[in-house]
Amino acid sequence: MDDIDRKICGLLQVSGRASSAEVADAVGLSVSSANERVRRLVAQGVITGWQAVLDREAVGAVLCAMVLLDMDYEGEAEACAALVAHPAVMELHHVSGAHSYLMKVRLPDTAALQRFLQDVVKPLPAIRRTETMISLEALKETTAVPVAGAGGGA
Rank of each mutant, 00 (worst) to 15 (best):
G75T: 11
L12W: 04
G16Q: 00
L136Y: 08
M66C: 00
A82F: 13
A21M: 07
A150C: 14
A112W: 00
A148R: 15
H93Q: 14
E141F: 06
L124I: 13
A112G: 07
V42C: 13
P108E: 10
C9T: 03
K122A: 06
L107T: 04
K140F: 04
Q114I: 10
E91H: 08
G97W: 06
D109N: 15
C64K: 06
L107S: 01
L102W: 09
E74P: 05
D70W: 09
Q118G: 13
P125A: 14
T130W: 05
V27C: 00
V62Q: 06
E91D: 03
V31Y: 02
V89W: 02
A77T: 15
D119H: 12
M133L: 15
G10N: 07
E22Y: 03
T48W: 10
F116N: 02
A85V: 10
E141Y: 07
R56Q: 09
Q44E: 15
L102Y: 03
H99G: 09
V42N: 07
A18T: 02
A111K: 15
L83D: 01
L124G: 08
S30A: 12
T132V: 11
H94I: 05
L117A: 05
M1N: 12
L29D: 00
S100E: 03
S20M: 05
V53H: 00
T110D: 11
A34M: 12
D25F: 13
S15M: 04
T48H: 11
G149L: 13
Q51A: 14
H86L: 06
G149F: 06
E78I: 08
L107A: 05
M71K: 01
D5P: 05
K122C: 09
R40M: 12
A24N: 02
F116D: 04
D70E: 15
T132S: 09
D109G: 14
Q44C: 14
G75L: 11
G97K: 13
A111N: 14
V53L: 06
V62D: 03
R37D: 04
Q114K: 14
P87W: 08
D109P: 10
C9E: 00
E36T: 15
V67H: 06
A138E: 15
